[in-house]
């Protein structure tokens, strides 16, 4: 039977501020991309899903059972990488994975075997005994990812797992996540839209604590038809227009400048883009006006 993680009207308030407002969706095995500007509620949503903080309202159900009722049983099913690189500088990579394995309640033999496996998966076998304090940002991120994958959890909640990785590492990790997601639920929050575009089965977009879109990438791309356009002109013209469309992206072409705009109604002189619409454009359309997107 396929595992299902269901969120029903999940709400989180900090005093008067609503960080998440009646968010509902259902996750099935596969990668679900989570997009949103900074402060949209992505990390809060993930913290609620890992039961790190108390929710104000709603339900989070794992195969029909509330995760609060499951308690430690639920946490045994979850692998999580937080947004901040939470690692101890004085631990070696191996020791940290052993520690996480112990906290996950894995048997010792299993910890040993899986630690070696995960270190190899994230290409850290040679650095296994080095202090994490000497690691680069990318290496630290890989340790976190390995710790999330330890114990082969049914649900992987990854908060910007590819931040700080070089392109090669990112592709490698992305492929690993896709491989893992074949039989488990993966929720992947990132600002690198191309990561989601490559591997996500579904994409959800959060804005101001509300879920404003949740669909397959192709459906989301289709919904942008006629809403993405490009304006050619001089640099001064482009700058003038950008004042009205701050989320527009300026690019230089051989014969001048071009401003790529995402708007429900394109301005005059703007040519609609038919092909080569990307998830980046989807974000620009849904998140226009948000800090991260202009």
């Amino acid at each position: 039977m396929e595992n299902i993680l269901e969120l029903k009207q999940v709400t989180k308030r900090y005093g008067n501020f609503t960080a998440l407002d009646n968010v509902s969706f259902t996750l099935h095995p596969g990668v679900t991309g989570l997009l949103g500007a900074n402060g949209a509620g992505k990390s809060t949503l993930m913290k609620l899903m890992t039961d790190h903080m108390k929710r104000t309202g709603g339900e989070i159900l794992w195969n029909g059972t509330d995760i609060l009722k499951m308690g430690a049983k639920w946490r045994a099913l979850v692998g999580y990488t937080p947004q901040l690189q939470g690692l101890y500088d004085d631990f070696s990579a191996r020791r940290f994975l052993y520690y996480m394995g112990t906290l996950k309640g894995m048997p010792h033999r299993e910890i040993k075997a899986q630690t070696a496996e995960m270190l190899a998966a994230v290409n850290l076998t040679d650095a296994a005994h080095k202090r994490i304090g000497t690691f680069s940002g990318g290496m630290r991120q890989r340790v976190l990812l390995a710790s999330a994958m330890l114990g082969k959890p049914q649900v992987l909640i990854l908060d910007e797992p590819t931040a700080g990785l070089d392109p090669g590492e990112r592709i490698r990790i992305r492929n690993d996540i896709a491989e893992l997601a074949r039989d488990r639920i993966v929720l992947l929050a990132t600002h690198v839209v191309s990561d989601i575009a490559c591997i996500a089965k579904q994409v959800m977009v959060l804005r101001g604590g509300k879920l404003i879109a949740f669909d397959t990438p192709s459906a989301l791309l289709a919904a942008t038809e006629g809403k993405i356009g490009e304006f050619f002109g001089t640099y001064d013209e482009i700058r003038q227009l950008q004042a009205q469309y701050p989320s527009g992206e300026i690019a230089q072409r051989r014969d001048g400048f071009v401003l790529r705009i995402a708007a429900d109604t394109l301005p005059e002189g703007c040519e609609p883009v038919k092909d080569a619409v990307t998830l980046e454009d989807v974000c620009r359309l849904y998140l226009k006006g948000e800090r991260e997107y202009g």
Partner: peptide, 9 residues
């Protein structure tokens, strides 16, 4: 947050 997300954390 990471530790609290584990079974024995």
């Amino acid at each position: 947050a990471l530790l609290r997300a584990t079974k024995n954390g």
